[in-house]
């Protein structure tokens, strides 16, 4: 279905260009927030792939933080090219994801969540005490350049925004095609019935590792983007509450959307920005209630709202018997 791939790529390109143009006319703080949303949305996108398999990682901050530190530390060495740094962060977090995924793929449910959490806390503990890596103060990140082009002044943020937009757009196209692909469909069926997959001849473990590596890579890219836009990285990127935040947004998004991953991130950041300023001691309460309500009423998140509208009516084919 080449036409599908072409259509999606063209659609994403059009959307990216439209947003890039729009970005030229908004105030700096909005642009900054948008860049943040794109970065974090990538992490969420990866978690959506895992959620499709009913896997929730309470330690995605590990790869996010790894990507950010790779980007930051390499930029300290005087290499500031955004493309190269992002690539390096993606590669690094993919390798970490692959190595850890080999072990993690044997775990499900709360054990998967907790193992990820433990691993991310190890990184947090190490970074916090490593003087050479900045300890609890973290590390500064040099302003990025783009294939030799070094924007300055007001242009700096805008150019970065366009860069982040391009990265997020490309990742989204890949993620979309992936979810529709042979591998993607097989992965989506893991949560329903691992036994059937094994009895079809597929290794569930392989599928989980594959998705895990994609998720880690996306988290690493997100981390690199955050490092570049904020200009500073700290161990808290690996702390479990950071991961919890990503899980929160992922649940809000639901597993089946691409745009919804970024949409949910935007909602989250907006609530934090607006509510955090106006009611600093109760915005988490607002978020928590929001989460409970969405789990209760939108079991498939924002993406589920659109999906349900498209699904055909369940006709008179008798009552579904849920045997699991």
């Amino acid at each position: 279905m080449l036409s599908l791939q072409r259509n999606v790529a063209l659609g994403a390109l059009a959307l990216t260009i439209a947003l890039a143009v729009l970005g030229a006319f908004v105030p700096e703080w909005i642009l900054y927030t948008c860049a943040l949303v794109l970065a974090k949305g990538l992490v969420v996108l990866g978690l959506c792939l895992l959620l499709r398999m009913n896997l929730v990682s309470f330690g995605q901050g590990l790869y996010y933080c790894a990507g950010a530190y790779i980007c930051g530390l390499v930029s300290q060495m005087g290499i500031s090219d955004a493309f190269f740094l992002t690539f390096l962060a993606a590669l690094g977090s993919a390798v970490v994801g692959l190595i850890l995924g080999l072990f993690l793929s044997g775990y499900r449910s709360v054990f998967f969540a907790m193992f990820n959490l433990a691993l991310s806390m190890i990184l947090y503990g190490v970074l916090l005490k490593s003087i050479s890596l900045g300890g609890s103060d973290g590390v500064g990140v040099a302003a990025p350049t783009y294939l030799g082009y070094a924007p300055d002044g007001e242009m700096r943020l805008y150019v970065f925004f366009v860069f982040a937009l391009a990265v997020a757009g490309a990742s989204s196209v890949f993620a979309f095609l992936y979810t529709k692909s042979e591998m993607g469909l097989a992965s989506a069926s893991v949560k329903d019935c691992e036994i059937r997959l094994e009895y079809l001849g597929l290794s569930v473990r392989y599928l989980i590792i594959f998705n895990f590596v994609i998720a880690s890579t996306l988290a690493g890219i997100g981390g690199a983007l955050v490092a570049m836009v904020s200009g500073h990285i700290i161990p808290e990127l690996a702390y479990w509450t950071t991961s919890g935040e990503f899980v929160f947004i992922t649940v809000l998004s639901g597993p089946n959307g691409i745009l919804s991953a970024f949409g949910a991130t935007a909602v989250f950041e907006t609530i934090r920005l607006v509510a955090g300023q106006n009611m600093p001691n109760s915005w988490q309460m607002l978020l928590g209630s929001f989460l409970l309500l969405s789990i209760l009423f939108m079991p498939n998140g924002i993406s589920g709202l659109f999906r349900r509208a498209k699904a055909p009516k369940p006709d008179a084919v008798g009552e579904g018997i849920n045997n699991d």
Partner: peptide
Amino acid sequence: RLFYERDEIVLLLVTFGLSLILEDLIKL
């Protein structure tokens, strides 16, 4: 009680939401 039919991992998320609410309740 509203979530007992759901998956273990969903209940983990529910209590996670609850923890956010309780934390702010404490601050209030």
